[in-house]
Design a protein around this nucleic acid. Structure first.
Lengths: 345, 345
DNA sequence: TTGTAAGCGTTATCAT
DNA sequence: ATGATAACGCTTACAA
């Protein structure tokens, strides 16, 4: 396979026929006699022939591989997404090449450069927190590279995208805290430039308003790197705790932020839910075990990966460009742990 | 980039010179005048030329991509490993193609087939729990495909491998339980056919013996799919709880198994550490938050990924075959949570 | 029904 | 110092 790969030439030589005949026979072309076909197939089998995808790629100008850019692989949410992407890719005979931005715009640009230089057929991307210059991506898209966004999307590039109903998830989580008796709910959230932040903050605000609570901007803390740096969360909570009007609950808008909150509260000996209510987005396997009354918004990450990859294949495999771009919105699931044990319960 | 990729031909045409001159100029060949070089470089820059890696791969018979096979991506331990692999790959300009066996030998074989047909330059693999037939892998290795094992390794194929000191991790975790007053420590572990199982069980047994406790085989429960199927763990614990001589603590030998134990104990209302001691391998971000006295063996997964990839590149980039295979053994880290609150504390 | 030859993008060998 | 050509493995007009 490595040092002595069998090619159609070998088959042709062995059978004393031409390579084109072999090629056609292998592709079951109608213009080849069944006799020859059988011979070729048999010989291919015997020699353990495997087509060389590189040669094919060169010829067909497509690689059957899709580039994926996420901020972190080692993050339950994103690894579940990759899992979903991979499941579709596997079914359809596609390759997935994953790279990480580590929330750095620069690194993301390098990844993009790298993946496209690797001639991926398409790009599945969730923007980094630092990204504000979309020109390169725009350029790639304009040149015809199929692009699908997921989770952290942008409206600046007109293409397919997949998100969850961030507003709904945030709304429900916040409302659940309210229903459990919390009055002064803070929000720890990502960079204000991310699409998910805007959407989730809106849900949080709307839930407060719908329950006659005035949103207080002092209660909202942005963690630019979304909890990738733990100290960011710690500091945010420290600030919240020194507010004159100290919050009695926190809503965290992402996996890492929720974890960060849990860690910080634990370190400071603040009990959940007695001393502080907590609700948050999380896709960790064991998030539900963490605290008796942690309310978790679980995102359908696997489904998101599948949906994104399906849309990608739609773009890649449609001969004609897709006119109408599709935005798939998936519903999050609110997991409520022992809601019977609220603050005032 | 996609529809109108610039090639050396375009540069040659634009400059009215031959493609070979362009090629040489781009590679900074000594036989090209500095004038021409400058012209070519400038033109390449202007046209935004990018070399086509597919064409190069075809020519050089190498793809600069490495196949990775793990059982699950969405598993902290493995995603951290992939992270490590990716970090080295990124530095060295390599591609990583990840695929999952989902603990199925059949799927693993398909993955292998797929990756090699994709002409990866090497294979990084952690065996599935079902794998018992290594003949195909052996064949690939014999044909010259560089293979590096990590975590779940085999001695049947003589090549580089990376593991953690499983014996040590298991020994320390078990001993820690003993020091905290537990006398009858059960073990929930993976399939007996995995290398990690053998090593960790040995550590567990040795720790018991060293502390004058007789290992009791009834206390050892194998979960063939290593907790990928939750019910397996649940059943194992159920069986342990109905033993005449009911264990007072459990040692779980993998991430998923530890999580499974936590879930099961929680569901049954069994408190840790009062009603049941628990120690286990886990690489989850938040494992340490889970239970006041859960003792966690954390594996240096990121480092393992890096080490494996480094060994791989050593194999791939050395022109001569590596004679002496290297087995890197990394040290696990025992994370002890509130050990001051043991059973009898 | 089968063979010949060109081409995908690049580099290496051999001329010039 | 530069150009023509073959080769990497495969497919596909075009010939035969």
């Amino acid at each position: 396979m490595k040092f002595e790969a069998v090619t159609i030439k070998d088959i042709a030589k062995a059978l004393g026929i031409s390579t084109s005949t072999v090629s056609r026979a292998l592709r079951d072309s109608y213009e080849i006699s069944s006799e020859t076909k059988e011979l070729v197939l048999e010989c291919a089998e015997k020699l353990n022939y495997r087509p060389n995808p590189i040669a094919l790629s060169l010829k067909e100008r497509r690689t059957r591989s899709i580039g994926v850019v996420v901020c972190e692989i080692a993050n339950s949410f994103f690894s579940q997404i990759i899992n979903g992407i991979e499941s579709i890719a596997y079914d359809k005979g596609y390759n997935v090449i994953v790279s990480q931005s580590h929330e750095s715009a620069e690194r993301e640009a390098v990844d993009l450069q790298y993946l496209t230089s690797r001639s991926v057929d398409g790009l599945l991307i969730s923007l980094s927190t630092e990204t504000n210059d979309l020109s390169y991506l725009h350029e790639l898209h304009d040149k015809g590279l199929p692009v699908v966004f997921f989770d952290r999307i942008t409206d600046e590039i007109n293409t397919h995208s997949v998100i969850i109903d961030n507003f709904k998830g945030a709304y429900e989580a916040t409302e659940h805290l309210i229903h459990n008796g919390y009055k002064n709910i803070a929000c720890i959230t990502n960079s204000e430039f991310l699409s998910i932040t805007t959407e989730r903050l809106a849900g949080y605000r709307e839930a407060l308003i719908a329950n006659n609570i005035n949103p207080n901007s002092a209660n909202i803390k942005h963690c630019f790197y979304g909890g990738m740096i733990f100290e960011e969360v710690e500091e945010a909570i420290n600030k919240l705790l020194t507010l004159k009007n100290k919050p009695d609950a926190i809503f965290a808008t992402s996996d890492k932020l929720t974890t960060g909150c849990l860690k910080t509260l634990k370190r400071r000996g603040i009990k959940i839910p007695e001393n502080m209510g907590l609700a948050g987005f999380s896709n960790s396997d064991i998030a539900e075990l963490l605290s008796p009354s942690l309310t978790v918004v679980r995102q359908p990450a696997y489904e998101m990966g599948k949906a994104a990859m399906e849309l990608m294949l739609q773009l890649v495999e449609s001969k004609r460009p897709v006119k109408q771009f599709e935005k798939r919105v998936l519903l999050p699931e609110l997991q409520i742990r022992e809601s019977s044990n609220p603050k005032n319960g």
